[in-house]
């Protein structure tokens, strides 16, 4: 829905689709392959209508073999094409881990720089749709662990719209995490929104009292929490990490150096997570600027429960963020 100020209200799903369409329009070598992306229109209807628009050669349904089609995508990328491989969900990406870790991430190194693997692998992920333990994984920390990959987390509509376009320009493999729970969420973005930077974290709200550092589905929750905190006089800065590998530590360190306090919010399990890494780096590089211990709000370390109230309780919610920040600043 277009408004007069050059902005448009759009769902996250629509933003991803527009990005896909623009990528397909821009470059004939770009194509989408994945389970049910064509005739079915994508498991989450992200690619609905694209088969009709771009034809079977550009929108390719593949057999139910994650290892097989991700491997094919890597091969096609090696051969000079620009495949966008869609893994229906991050949960199934485990079946393609060997292709991603041992081929996509290492071939540049193994070939002494002769071979690049410019594949983009998109996967939907996250918690909040009552999909139960096996289908509610947050594997961002897994992929962010692997040298040779660029790992992006789509926490905002702008990034849903623009990250793919920039990712396709990368000579190296890019993993893009999209969040199922946000697909129907409507936000305003610029009518002319397009490609975005994929090297920097972004300060989404400036503040002076505390840095809330987050990514993915933590982003909007943190922004809402920051608004509520503002009403009680706490001026929180919200940082969307966006790029989980390589981490843009400059941005969050600068923020912590200013606010002297940091809390990291993520849905992934707490131990050995993105927040563990952020917290360590703050400790290593901004220790003498800290006025309070770094805190973390993470997914609770249990298989994600099916019942809605337990599922909600398993991950940080807006109120959790508000309460944790208040406690850090006012100790209440």
């Amino acid at each position: 829905m277009e408004s007069s100020n050059g902005k448009i209200t759009i769902t996250y799903r629509e933003a991803v689709k527009q990005g896909l369409r623009e990528a397909l329009q821009n470059d004939e070598n770009v194509f989408l392959m994945g389970e049910d992306v064509g005739r079915y229109g994508g498991a989450f209807a992200v690619s609905k209508g694209l088969l009709q628009e771009f034809g079977e050669e550009r929108i390719m349904d593949v057999p139910l073999s994650e290892s097989g089609f991700v491997g094919a995508g890597i091969g096609l990328a090696l051969a000079g094409l620009k495949p966008i491989v869609e893994l229906m969900t991050v949960n199934f990406s485990l079946l393609a881990m060997d292709q991603i870790v041992n081929n996509a991430a290492t071939l540049s190194h193994m070939s002494g720089g002769q071979l690049n693997v410019p594949v983009v692998i998109r996967m939907s992920c996250g918690i909040g749709k009552q999909l139960a333990a096996q289908h509610s994984h947050s594997w961002e920390p897994f992929y962010a662990h692997i040298p040779g990959l660029i790992v992006l987390s789509v926490g905002t509509h702008e990034d849903a719209r623009g990250m793919l376009l920039t990712a396709l320009k990368s000579p190296d493999p890019v993993i893009i995490f999209e969040y199922t729970a946000m697909l129907n969420l409507e936000k305003e973005i610029a009518v002319d929104a397009g490609a975005v930077d994929i090297s920097k974290a972004k300060v989404l709200k400036k503040g002076k009292d505390i840095s809330i550092i987050t990514y993915g589905s933590g982003v909007y929750k943190s922004l809402e929490a920051a608004s509520e905190l503002a009403s009680v006089g706490i001026d929180a800065e919200v940082i969307d990490l966006r790029v989980l590998r390589p981490l843009d530590e400059e941005t969050f360190l600068a923020s912590v150096t200013k606010t002297h306090r940091a809390i990291i919010v993520e849905e992934a399990w707490r131990s050995v997570s993105i927040s563990s890494e952020i917290s360590s780096r703050i400790m290593e590089k901004a220790f003498y600027d800290l006025d309070a211990p770094v805190q973390r709000l993470c997914g609770i370390e249990v298989p994600i429960p099916y019942p809605l109230h337990l599922e909600d309780a398993a991950i940080p919610q807006k109120n959790d963020i508000v309460n944790a920040v208040k406690k850090m600043i006012r100790h209440d």
Binding site: R270, S271, A324
Partner: peptide
């Protein structure tokens, strides 16, 4: 309820 996050730790 506010502070302690149950984890496996």
């Amino acid at each position: 309820t506010i502070t302690i996050q149950p984890t496996e730790e």
